[in-house]
Amino acid sequence: MTDQLADSAEKLFTAHAGKAVLGAAEQGVFPQPLWDAVVEAGFTAALLPEEAGGFGATVAEAMGLLRISAAYAAPVPLGETMLAGWLLARAGLAVPEGALSIAPVRTKDRLTLTRDGDGWTLTGTATRIPWARDAAAIAVLAEGPDGPAVALLPKGSFTVAHDRNTAHEPRDTITVEATLPAGAVALANTTAAQLRAAGAAIRTVQMAGALSRVLSITIGYVQTRVQFGRPIGKFQAIQQNMAILAGQSAAALAAADNATDALAGTLSPLLVGSAKARAGEAASIGAGLAHQAHGAIGFTQEYDLHYVTKRLWSWRDEFGNEAEWNALVGRAALEAGPDGLWPLLTAA
């Protein structure tokens, strides 16, 4: 990603995703000015191919923008809008403007399409849908009569029951009983497993961004907090923990880059799964060390740290936690067998 693009993102989030905005978002206020700025800057279209309205950014650049947004804990559906656009574009459907989300996101939830004259009826319930209440439309990967299909479900054609994650990001339940015109549905060339993998890649990138912020907040804090007459960062126990935190942050960034490669390529479940699991583990270790180094101040509403750590604690579980993805990776390793294991890793 170019420095220029990164700089413009840093500036945008510094200006629009300050403490007041994050605090209000936790109280349920959608940060419209922030979102407008993100859309205006074109970030929501960054993952789209040019013919679908993108501006020719690479997948790595799009993920770079997402990573920066997560470092600021920007309380907007940037990742979800990117993911929905990705799903729609792959199915050849037009990508509408506005905030978007995807459904379903839980493996057991199903939305079903049946024919209805020239058009379709979509029915079902899906839980934990990110930002459903704020979305202009939801890209649904549904079960159709001829296999999986993608349907574009506009706002108003579903009901929303509010739910949330540990960071108070919307994770709503949607109930759908909608008639859709023929043009809103297309055969999917994306499987449920691929959508889950793409979602996992998105969350991996976000975790890497949030964890890099956890690191910088914490390093800044231990350099200024004085106890026993010196900054606590001068104590070796703290230094050693900060080195561990830095290592976990680096591992999460490497995992995010692996996930980005997968998203740009064949969406290798091994590469995405290992990345999501590794970043999730880094999130757990890193958040714990950061809070420990902060003492009580880090446990307050007033101090910034929780905006990122609370996201980490949810993102590590969304689109599959470490146990789920490690099981998949481990199965692949076991199936490869003793002679196939290493070749499997180098081909990932």
């Binding site: 799964g273 993805w325 490690n326 481990g330």
Partner: peptide
């Protein structure tokens, strides 16, 4: 399953380290 998860975890670590 327990072994698959553990082996997967090790593998996930190796893949991140390889990149670094």
């Amino acid at each position: 399953e327990r072994a698959a998860v553990a082996i997967g975890r090790i593998t996930s670590h190796i893949l991140a380290l390889r990149r670094l």
